[in-house]
Structure formats: C-alpha cells, structure tokens
Design a binder for these strands. Sequence first.
DNA 1: AAAATAAATTAGATTAACCTAAATATATTA
DNA 2: TAATATATTTAGGTTAATCTAATTTATTTT
Lengths: 217, 217
Amino acid sequence: MHSFTEENYLKAIYKLQETNGEVVATSVLAQVMGVHAPSVTDMLKRIAGKKLVTYQKSKGVKLTERGRQVAVAIIRNHRLWEVFLVDKLGFKWDEVHELAEQLEHIHSEDLTNKLDKFLGFPKADPHGDPIPDANGVLPKSNAVLVSSLKVGEEGTFTGVTDHTPAFLNYLDKTGISLGSCLKVKSIEEFDQTFTLQLKPKREVVVSHKVANSLLVG
Amino acid sequence: MHSFTEENYLKAIYKLQETNGEVVATSVLAQVMGVHAPSVTDMLKRIAGKKLVTYQKSKGVKLTERGRQVAVAIIRNHRLWEVFLVDKLGFKWDEVHELAEQLEHIHSEDLTNKLDKFLGFPKADPHGDPIPDANGVLPKSNAVLVSSLKVGEEGTFTGVTDHTPAFLNYLDKTGISLGSCLKVKSIEEFDQTFTLQLKPKREVVVSHKVANSLLVG
DNA sequence: AAAATAAATTAGATTAACCTAAATATATTA
DNA sequence: TAATATATTTAGGTTAATCTAATTTATTTT
C-alpha cells in the first residue's frame, strides 16, 4: 500500500485543493507538511509515479481520481476515530486531532465500516466536519461563515474552520457549542467585531477572526 | 520516540525471552521478524545504543528494564485493542491480530487508560492472554497446557498458545471456547491423542498438537 | 524587455531499515 | 584437537524520506 508519509501528502493536497483551488504549489505543500521544498519535489515525483497525482515540473500538482479516493478514505477514518474518541472514550474536542492523525492510517474497510456502525453512522465529526460515506461521497454542505452574515441574520452553529486547541478552548470558555443558535445583533464598522445572540438571550462579542472561523447552516 | 520497527523488535525479544529463556539469539530474532540476520545485527546495535537492550557481539540480546517497559506497554495496547475489536466492533477472535498490530503502536497513556476504562478494565484479551496493568504488571498465570494433564484431570479453558486463524477456526468449529470446562478422559499411548470431555457431556478427540496449544487454569 | 526577486528543481548527503556476499566467530563432531 | 558446520558480523549496496547548497525556471518590477 502507501506509506504514512505518502498518505499525509495526499491528504494535504486534497485539503489545499478544496480551499485554495485546483492546483497546489510546491511551496505551499512544503509549508503545510512542515518540510523543505526539495523534499516535496521528491515526493511529488514518487506519488506521480504511482498515479496518485498529476504533476508537471514547476506547475504544481492535482490529485488523480485514485489519489482523491485514498485521501477521502483517510479523512473518513480520521473523522470516525474522532467521533469515537469524543463520544465513547470521553476526550474533549480539542484533544483528539493528533490521535486521529495516527489512527486514520490503519487501513481496513472492514474496520472502518464496523466502527461507523458502532458509532451509529455519524454524519459529522466533533468539530462539525462532514464524514464521507463508504463510497467516498461527502455530503456537500450549505454552511456559511458567521463573518458573511448581515445584521439580523442567524443560523445554527455547525462547524469550525479553525481546529486549533486554542480556538476550541476559547469557544468552550465562551459557551459557544455545536448546535447553538447564533444571531448577528450588530457588527462594529471599525473592526468588524460581531455581537452575537446565543441560544436563550445571552450576548457575546467576538472578533472578526472568530466570526470568520464559525460556520452556521 | 521509537520507530514501529524498533518496537516490533522489542516485542519479539520480550516474547522470546518469556518462552525461550533469558538471552535471545540473532538467528531466532531474524526468523520471527521475517528478516535476514544482518538486519537484526544492525537493529540490535541501534536499540542497544538507545539502552533498550544489552547486546554483546555474537552472544545475543536481553531487554533492559526500559526495553521491557516499552514492550509491555505495547502488549497492553495490543490486547486492549483486541478486546475492543471483538467486544465492541464484533470482530471474531481470529480476525483481530493484524489490526491490533497496527493499533498497538499508537502511544498515548491517556488513550490507553481511557480505552481500558471504556472496556471495563478487562483482565485478558479475546484469546485469554493477560492484559498488563497501567504499571506494566502482568498477572502471573497458573495456567497449564492440556497436554501436561493426566487422565482424569480437568480445568477451565483459559487461553491458547497458538494464535493462528487456522487454529482458532478449528476451535470454533469443534465448539471449544474460552471458559469451557475440559476434562481428560483418555490419552492414546501411540500418538498422544487426547479425548476430552467438554462442558455438559460432549466428547472431542484432539491431537497432541492441539492439546499442546490449549491452556487450562 | 531587462533586471531583480521568488519559486522550484537538481545535485549530493544523511539516516533507518533492509538486502547479498564475504569474513569471522562459535559450536559440533569425528 | 583438528575439521567441519553453523551462527554472527562486517562490508558494501538499496530505497524512502529528509536535508543544504547550488542552479534553473517563473514571475514581478523597473
């Protein structure tokens, strides 16, 4: 099969294609993988040889359909294990990423599907990220960033775009949790600070950075 | 930390020390690790450098206390994951070894202990192998091989020494399962075939090879 | 368009984990 | 004990994944 490292590159390319567009640059990959550019060039040649990506010198990479399938399978594993760690073992949502990074590389369709069933076929992980189904299909979400809402608009908090423990802890402390109903009361002209109305009638003031990391749907 | 490979050597050395005595030979390790002897010599030098084993040229290896701790921690992980796979996910006892071989290398005391708790602090894995506690202490067992019993002696089937799917399937088919009460009805002089009385009043005839792979306690 | 800057690649090393072939050490047996 | 056989190690090579330094390619800026 593929090495952990190869799989991590595929995952990174997948995520970069999702957010930054079709083609991924060597330097960007080097950045997110925490390695230097020549290492990326090496790896791209290797995985291009395995038909997992299409790669043209100095022009960036794209996943092939096979590469996409591998990446999505790993993401499915990752998110299912996160659900397991939180729902069954009692980890907090800011503690599970690193462990899931390891668990995700254990390849067994049987294991993945049994885990899925054991967890009750969850649709999203503890951070609200959608879990691909057994065929690698991701439910496409209609979630939008709170930062894109206008005054008076509202939605249910369904996910985050920042997965750092620091941010997740901030949300815990502030009492903003998945499923909360958020309504934009006002937006400060000067610095785009948002005042949000939470569930019953609490109000919280959050920076634009925060509003830009919260998804509602 | 240590690489998966290093950990697998430590585990192998641990198991060989348990069964074959104090010191482990290069060739035996090569055999069980499925590699050639010079690879073992290489690795022994490496892990000796890390103080995980004591190694003297051409005289074999022993685990240090540190090495033993690492090995036992991995065995604890392995057996806990096996319990999880069988009890929670519904795998059969002959299907879990390979998966547990992968899961065992995920190091997190927190994960291990939460898993242990989730599983109800099991004392043994699905094959009856004892699970080391959080301090690396293995309950020392008083189990004996059925092959060592005399006619008329009996015991509760508590474990196997052969973990191959082939053998485990044979037991399933024959109806010998963990917890069964086994009594030796007779032993054939000629080839040491055992006739065993099972639970209510069934009788099964098993070869010496089988009697030598069943533990009762 | 030429020059300057930035990005990407090539060249050449390193480390872990393996290999084969050759050499040495240990154990066995005549 | 000498001769043979077996076990182990050394020597030298390979691949995956990384690195640094140097070079080449692409993009900006003047």
